[in-house]
């Protein structure tokens, strides 16, 4: 795989995946976005050599993904001390805060509710890149 700057998105909602892909294409050309749609595959990928060789610059992790939920994926990922500088932003479709504390304890760097509209998402994604990738 060609060396590239990419963002890893762990997200199962195909609409959201399509919207994010589109936003990256049009507005964030410097970064690619790669999607994984369930927790198990995400953990497999994190443990793989491919991941070691080419780590993402930022992980967007939906808290509710199938097979293994987002918090579990986060826990597994943070076991890897070597990746501690990779920021993880937890995405929640709920604005209830019950999982927020857990996420921070497990090593999330940020916790955010998914934007309600496309235009908000268009603003949010570049902001995340600017804030978390140095």
């Amino acid at each position: 795989m060609k060396s590239e700057n990419y963002i890893l998105s762990i997200e199962d909602n195909t609409t959201d995946i399509a919207l994010m892909t589109r936003i990256f294409e049009r507005r964030i050309p410097d970064y690619a976005i790669r999607h994984i749609s369930d927790g198990e595959t995400a953990v497999d990928f994190i443990e793989s050599d491919a991941f070691k060789k080419q780590s993402p610059k930022l992980i967007l992790l939906d808290i509710k993904v199938p097979k293994l939920d987002g918090l579990e994926v986060l826990r597994q990922f943070r076991k890897h001390r070597e990746y501690k500088t990779i920021p993880v932003v937890m995405m929640s479709s709920s604005d209830l805060n019950e999982d927020k504390e857990k996420a921070y304890l497990l090593g999330a760097n940020s916790f955010m509710a998914k934007p309600k509209t496309f235009l908000e998402l268009c603003e949010t994604l570049p902001n995340l890149i600017n804030n978390w990738i140095i």
Binding site: N13, T15, D16, A18, L19, R22, S93, K114, P115, K116, T117, F118, L121
Partner: peptide, 10 residues
């Protein structure tokens, strides 16, 4: 919210 984001987004 999610489907609405889709409608709005597309």
């Amino acid at each position: 919210r999610a489907p609405l984001r889709g409608i709005d987004g597309f």
